[in-house]
Nucleic acid binder design. Structure first.
Lengths: 167, 167
DNA sequence: GCCAACCGATTGCAATTTGCAACTGGTTGC
DNA sequence: GCAACCAGTTGCAAATTGCAATCGGTTGGC
């Protein structure tokens, strides 16, 4: 971890932290797929990250203060990774990326549905989702009123996935 | 240019196109610094990109339909790079990155002022700025009423830069 | 017409990063 | 006690990055 920066530009600094091909995908899986353990992130990812890269990125994200790690009381070896407030606030970047990719790139139907809903929901829905993430990752109390944004996104995904693969 | 994708997820696809350390910085310079020639992008960048990387990224961005290149009538060797509509619509991603970096990373004062204004301006200001980019890059007519967003950002930057280095 | 400065790249090469596969040392459940 | 699972680590090859020098051509000044 050398801390020589190319410049003090906020966009550049952000890219130096999360501007690689994997970090934001890990964040995405933590946010939308609720992956919290190493194995979950390793095996349940669409893209198939390898374990050394995952370990390296988790370390980097830890050092950057984007995630935290604590021991899982149910299993001595398991660690639970959580997003920090700083990590949760990466959501708008992911949402904009999802919207742009949905509009211009050959997105698959199952994986695109969440992007569409999130894009249509706009900043208001993002804020709501970030509040839910604060509850699950920072231990804030949950106020419970109907389906959460996370649940709605997941349900929409499963509907499309099941429709396309009714096996 | 192999087109095997890791997954059809919109975020992943977006990262495969612009998820490296340089592409978005080039877009940033085209948007905020109005760099349109190879030399300008090469020498006037804060971070000091090297020429082979720049050439490679410009080629990639061309193939992805994010920028276009046309000959400069004033110089047979010069090319003018322009953003496409698709490229202009990367602005919200850059704006969110700027806002996040401004909030959480050690941004320099000069380079941070634009991020602050852009963040405070919100989606409305982004839309206005994107309209201006359509004018300069896509040749849309300019309706002229007061200072443009680009001019305001530039003026703010120069005020801070001059204050900090009154040489 | 000549030459220096500038133009958009390209090339060779070393250093870094990535990615795969196998493996480690340990824990848990049956 | 043993198979399955856990979070990583290691060795090594391949790909990417980054620097410096260079290329062939264009332009402006004289």
């Amino acid at each position: 971890m050398t801390d020589d920066r190319r410049s003090g530009c906020p966009i550049n600094l952000t890219l130096e932290v999360v501007g690689d091909k994997w970090s934001l995908l890990i964040i995405r899986d933590m946010m939308f797929g609720n992956r919290r353990h190493f194995r979950e992130l390793l095996t349940k990812s669409e893209e198939g990250i390898s374990s050394n890269i995952l370990a390296d990125r988790l370390k980097t994200l830890l050092e950057a203060g984007i995630i935290t790690r604590e021991d899982d009381p149910s299993h001595k070896q398991k660690g639970i990774y959580s997003l920090t407030e700083q990590g949760i606030e990466l959501l708008p970047i992911l949402a904009q990326m999802a919207a742009w990719g949905y509009k211009y790139l050959p997105v698959s139907e199952e994986l695109g549905i969440r992007a569409r809903l999130l894009s249509e929901g706009g900043p208001k829905m993002w804020a709501e989702f970030m509040d839910e993430l604060r509850q699950t990752h920072l231990g804030h109390v949950r106020r419970k009123k109907g389906l959460s944004v996370g649940e709605r996104l997941q349900a929409a995904y499963e509907r499309v996935a099941k429709r396309n693969d009714p096996a």
